[in-house]
Amino acid sequence: MTAEDEALKALRTSQTLDLLIWAAPVAFAATDQLYDEDAGHDQMVIGILNFTHLRDLLDRATANGRFKVGEGLHGLGADAVKRGISPDAFKSMPLVEDNAIMRRDYKRSPGWVAEGYRILLQSYSFGKVDQIHWGQRSDAKRKVATQQYVAAEALFTDEDFDLESVQGIPDDDEFEGITLIAAHAFNPVTKQYELYVGQSKNPQHKEDSCWHWKKRILFGGTPIGGSGLAVPPLLPGDAASTEVDDVTVRIKGRRQAEEAGAANG
C-alpha cells in the first residue's frame, strides 16, 4: 500500500473525503450564483469565493469556526446550521460527530485535522493543477510544499500507525501529522469543476511535478465547445461525479439536526 493509499484510507475513515465531496459542488454552485463577468470578476474573485464558501461549509459540517459548539452543548440547532445553504445541501450534509474533525490552522491558513492528516485549501485555474507554483503562493503553502515525503512503509511501527514518527512541516509545533492540499477549481463560464487531494512539493527542476502525489476526487461540467461527454450544469444540491468508488457518503437528515436543535432548547 502506497503513502497515497494510506492517506486516502485515513481521509475516508475520518469522513474528510465525504465532506469534501459534499462541500465542493455546493461551494461552486454558490460561486456560480455570485459570479458576474460584466462586473470584472476574474480568477482571483472566483478563487476567493470558492475558498470562502468551502471554508464555511467545512466549518458548518464539523462545528468549527463560527459554528463552533459552546461548552456543554452537543450540537447547534437546525436553524443555525441550515441558514445560508439550500435545503438540498442541508439534507445531504454528512453527519460528523462533535470534535471528530478539528480546526488546526497553519500560518492563518484554515486547516481541518483528523486521523493524523490535515487538509488545507488551495484554488487554481481549471485544468492547471500541475502548474501550481507553491513558491508564488502564501507562505503557508510554500512551507507545506517543503514537507518531507514519507513512503508508506515508514508510516508503520510494529504494524501500528505511528504518526509521531512522521516528520511534518518543519516549523509547525501544533501538528505532527501530514498536511495535504485540497486543490479546487471551477470555471463559471463552462461550469467545469474539479477537486484534487494530494501532497504538494516544490519541484527541484523545471520538468518536475509540483506534487508528490495527487488524486482527483471530483470532476464534472460542460467542456468548452461542447465536445466529449457533457455533464449537466452545477446546481445547489446536485450530486457530483467521483473517481473514488469506495467512498461511502453518510447522510445527515433534517430530522437528526432538528432533534439536536430541540435538545439544545
Rank of each mutant, 00 (worst) to 15 (best):
L57W: 02
I132D: 01
G168K: 04
E115Y: 03
V144Q: 03
G70C: 00
P223F: 03
A3E: 14
V144R: 01
I251P: 00
N264C: 15
R254C: 11
T222R: 04
V150E: 00
S165Q: 12
W22N: 02
I85G: 06
R104G: 15
E71D: 14
A39V: 09
Q131D: 11
P110Y: 08
R255S: 11
T31C: 12
D98I: 13
I251V: 12
N99W: 13
L163V: 13
Y106R: 01
Y106I: 02
P233V: 03
D36W: 06
R254K: 15
V189W: 05
E207W: 12
D246R: 12
L95C: 07
L8R: 01
W213E: 07
E159H: 14
R142T: 11
R60F: 01
Y149D: 07
R255W: 09
V231Y: 11
T190D: 00
S14K: 02
E4I: 02
K9Y: 10
V96R: 05
L218R: 00
G221S: 05
F186G: 06
S109E: 14
Q15F: 00
S14C: 05
G226S: 06
I48Y: 15
Q122I: 08
Y124H: 06
G135L: 05
L180C: 05
R103D: 08
A152W: 04
K215D: 03
K68F: 11
D88H: 14
Q199R: 03
P25W: 07
E97C: 06
I101S: 02
G65Y: 04
I21H: 10
Q148P: 05
L54H: 00
K191Y: 11
V166F: 09
G261Y: 01
S165W: 05
Q136L: 14
G135R: 08
A10M: 13
K214E: 03
K82H: 10
A240S: 12
K206M: 14
L95P: 07
G77D: 15
Q167P: 00
L73S: 10
W112N: 04
G65S: 06
N264I: 15
D172A: 02
P232E: 10
E174H: 15
W134E: 01
D88N: 13
I101G: 09
K143S: 00
Q256F: 12
L17D: 04
V249E: 00
A183R: 08
Y149C: 04
A39C: 13
G77H: 09
A151W: 10
N50E: 11
E159V: 09
G70P: 07
N99H: 14
I251Q: 10
H53I: 08
G72E: 08
K143Y: 07
A154R: 15
T2G: 06
A185K: 06
A145S: 13
V81H: 04
Q148W: 05
A151Y: 04
W112E: 03
F28V: 00
E176D: 13
L34H: 10
Q204V: 07
D32K: 14
W213G: 08
Q204I: 09
L163Y: 11
G198K: 00
P223S: 09
G177V: 02
D246E: 15
S92A: 15
G40V: 05
G177W: 08
T31W: 09
